[in-house]
Design a protein around this nucleic acid. Structure first.
Lengths: 179, 179, 179, 179
DNA sequence: TATGAATGAGCCTTCATTCAT
DNA sequence: CATGAATGAAGGCTCATTCAT
């Protein structure tokens, strides 16, 4: 049933927020009100479940880059806005940051997804900024995103506002410093 | 025996580097050449062991701040040097970054230790910078350290050099920008 | 639909060859291009499916005995030929040997089928041999067939040729030895 | 504790008799009155447990061959006695026959053990028989033992006496037939 | 004090079997 | 009748933690 797939994605998203992407499969099944077998039927591996939960957001985020480039704004502004959206996703979906930088084999798919979709998207914005002399050419999409992803790992005393602030400062530090 | 305590700290440090702070207790015991019971005798909880392993480094790091303040250098330079030392600890001691920002109840001691020792140390440097008009007053020691700690979570394709670079950019973004 | 029954028998036969009679029901359903429910509808228990798959061969084998008795050959030769046919079935239908001697409750039907059809058939040949003084009266159809069935359990380094050879030697040992 | 190892071996032997060598580890642990972890501590893999249970018997059996060769008896008689001992082990230790011919990766050790110990032992006896012109040179130790092992798979209506009888007939069929 | 064997909870994964559509 | 999604029992394995020696 399609209903279960939806329920599972919702349950998984909720459980990932609470426990992270390494939460026991049973917990997700229980939250969705189904048996563990059902989880395995729909998502044979943990990676497939995690990937499914975040795929849509990642696609949207990737699609945002070309849109921003078409707008009549400075490359730096475009990158800033894109990163802001990225951050929004990261802090909304607790655990995604960790997942994106994990080397856990069961999360390889998600990592690959990031490499395939987000890195190129982010890279186009950085390239535009570099071309305009606004961004330090040393900055690479991969490193920047890893850093942003890390900065978005929240905790007590370090909320999403703090993360946004720190990401903004990091971007400031990525500006071209021609002195 | 005091010998065992030393051996355990050395073994734990080594194992933490290789496997992170969640490494099996048995591995640490084995590395130290003792039984697991001995680990529990000396360090009843994992947090106490982790704390003990890093306490010395943290003390040193905390002591560095007043030294730097006494030197004839700009406050920004002092903060930069202090953070560099902090980063060195973070990336050298694999897992410390994660541990410092973890809410895992078993690591609360370490978190508390950071609050008690490092935050004040870092805060004096920030305060000096703010007083000199070099640092944005919005920046707080706690948030900065969390951010730096996060930036030092390494992984494939994001090594210590990358972390240092990103931390440097973050500090740039923390400068007073009254233009 | 009768079609499904046929498809299932064919699929089951194929899967039994590959995986043995303990193969997952789902594999059989998949091979037949039907749902698992359909398997259960036609064959409520695994035993019924296994039985159905082999019934025809068993019937043929049973019918061979009276034919051989009618031919102008020595009783020993008749028994040898019959056993050869039996062996052919056993090694061709992977898992049948195991199934025939299994005490697994789910395979009782097949066991009963052997008792009802094959034992009497084999017994008539043995009786003829005993009457002719060629076969040791100690040999009983049931034990002989169990033994032959066991000898036909193949494996790496013990193929059907080996099984045939050993069965031939066993039959040699069943000859009347009044010397 | 050495006691547990003994208890485990005893429990495993008993459970293997009842359920075969694929019995759940939990059952063995329960029978021995220990936790599953204890089983894994003593025998990290199923193969090691099975091997340990049967190693002693296999060693004894292997050692019997040279003894028999030294006695003033016919090679055929020696082989017959050795096989009788082998059969005794096989039927006493239910499941060993199956285990010895299994291709299950978890039982590879046991299979290897048979290859290393029993095959050579049996081969020396066969060679002696062949040299004396009493045994058909076509017979190889491996095939003979596989066959004997198979013949010793017991079941309802086919007990150890039946197995012995059939093995005896098989050996008769292995005699040199110079006519 | 030190040891490490023992325990058992907890997670993963597979499949036989049921049942709503 | 057919389907195949759902269920959940079963069994494997891994450690954190305890405790008798």
């Amino acid at each position: 049933m399609e209903r279960n797939r939806e329920a599972l994605l919702a349950a998984a998203a909720a459980v990932f927020v609470e426990q992270g992407v390494q939460a026991p499969i049973r917990d997700i099944a229980g939250r969705a009100g189904v048996g563990v077998g059902t989880v395995y039927r729909h998502f044979p591996t943990r990676a497939e479940l995690v990937t499914a939960v975040y795929r849509h957001q990642l696609d949207e985020c990737a699609a945002l880059a070309p849109q921003l480039l078409r707008e009549p704004i400075a490359p730096t502004e475009a990158l800033t806005r894109w990163v802001a959206t990225f951050v929004e996703f990261l802090v909304t979906k607790h655990g995604l940051g960790v997942a994106l930088q994990s080397e856990d084999p069961s999360l390889l798919s998600l990592h690959r997804l990031m490499l395939e979709k987000l890195i190129p998207a982010c890279a186009t914005l950085i390239d535009a900024g570099v071309a305009a002399g606004e961004i330090d050419p040393e900055v690479t999409a991969y490193r920047l995103m890893r850093a942003v992803g890390n900065l978005c790992i929240l905790g007590a005393g370090y909320d999403r506002a703090d993360a946004k602030d720190m990401v903004a400062r990091l971007l400031t530090g990525c500006r071209q410093t021609r002195d």
